[in-house]
Write a protein that binds this DNA or RNA. Structure first.
Length: 356
DNA sequence: AACGCGGGGTG
DNA sequence: CACCCAGCGTT
């Protein structure tokens, strides 16, 4: 049995893979017209994000920001609104920072070599490989989670895929066999095979796989043991109390800090822990409001990858205030919906803005 | 090398 | 519930 990628002859995989790809390639919006800008935007959206989730954002983003110049000039709040709900919001700030870099250093033309692409914010080894190979036919591997899964299974390589050294070994092995005349197809074929046949979550569909008879883990019946990835730490639980502070049809929102979780998005104000009504009222008064009425609403939970928010919720009706602190905004629901990016974590409570 | 960073689909 | 997803930047 093969054990390491270096012991496996990857050359024999290429022809069956490309033949399979030409018959079964997914039809995806960003494959219609794979310009460097289109590939770039799609690859950033696809980082740690499912294809199905990206489909709802890609066309709208390009329609609003059709080229590098438009992206480089877009106000941050509009940028975040276009990304609202997609997660990992630093991706879109880095994308814009990189667009400005491209305008300044490359006269608006996205560079083609992995080395230059790697200098741009938000572009790491995977994305550099994807852009250079798919948009520019540069013979560079693009190793993502799909490729790790497909390759470790076919070779029965039980190396820890979370180690950067293993990524480098996979890239080196693939660089030696990637077809010069179809590097983009080769990389996309590996990803499609991982997405459609050699799937995560559950058993792979080996009977449909072009590599069925060459796959070491298939021969051993050990497909589910790959890829070898250490388990993640348990999530931390944070208790908080979310306040829907409303006056008529306006509600209080505030901008989150520039760094950290959900940086730069807007949120409903919240208190640490689970204060009683007395403390909540005092808190609202300290914000500069006159509370008229307080009503408890349902609990909510939101799960991030590393944190869980366990939330209590209160609707606090307040008197119309003439002046409020600078960092606080009293906004109509329709305006929030149109202009302010609010993370999904608050979705359980946003409905009280509209219907109450 | 370890950790922070979203949100949702799936078994 | 746990796991994972077209990863990257920071420390």
């Amino acid at each position: 049995m093969e054990q390491y990628i270096e012991d496996y002859n990857l050359t024999k995989l290429t022809t069956p893979l490309l033949k399979w790809f030409h018959a079964h390639a997914r039809s995806l919006p960003w494959r219609d017209e794979p310009t460097p800008y289109h590939v770039w935007v799609s690859e950033i959206m696809l980082q740690q994000t499912r294809v199905e989730a990206v489909k709802g954002y890609y066309d709208r983003f390009l329609k609003c920001l059709p080229d590098v110049k438009a992206l480089s000039e877009c106000p941050e709040d509009e940028l975040l609104k276009l990304w609202e709900g997609l997660g990992y919001y630093n991706r879109v700030r880095n994308l814009q920072a990189a667009a400005r870099q491209v305008m300044e250093d490359y006269n608006g033309i996205i560079p083609s070599s992995p080395k230059e692409l790697l200098q741009l914010k938000g572009i790491g080894s995977y994305t550099a490989g994807a852009i250079s190979s798919i948009a520019y036919q540069y013979p560079q591997p693009a190793v993502d989670g799909n490729v790790f899964r497909v390759i470790t299974r076919v070779c029965a390589d039980d190396s820890d895929i979370s180690k950067p050294a293993f990524r480098k070994r996979v890239e080196k092995a693939l660089r030696e066999v990637i077809p010069e005349d179809a590097p983009g197809d080769y990389n996309q074929a590996l990803m499609d095979l991982g997405a459609m046949v050699c799937v995560p979550n559950g058993r792979p569909h080996c009977e449909e796989c072009p590599w069925e008879l060459m796959c070491e883990s298939r021969k051993a019946g050990t497909q589910l043991e790959y890829p070898n990835k250490p388990k993640k730490a348990k999530r931390k639980i944070e208790k908080k109390t979310v306040l829907i502070i409303r006056d008529g049809d306006h509600v209080l929102i505030q901008k989150r800090p520039k760094t950290g979780l959900l940086a730069g998005l807007y949120e409903l104000p919240a208190m640490e822990g689970q204060p009683g009504r007395r403390e909540i009222i005092e808190y609202v008064e300290r914000l500069g409001f006159e509370p008229l009425h307080i009503k408890k609403v349902e609990d909510a939970k939101h799960i991030f990858s590393h944190i869980e928010w366990h939330m209590k919720g209160y609707v606090v009706s307040v008197a119309e205030s003439t002046h409020l602190p600078k960092e606080l905004l009293m906004v109509e629901f329709a305006t929030i919906q149109r202009e302010y990016a609010i993370p999904s974590a608050f979705s359980a409570y946003l409905k009280y803005i509209k219907t109450f």
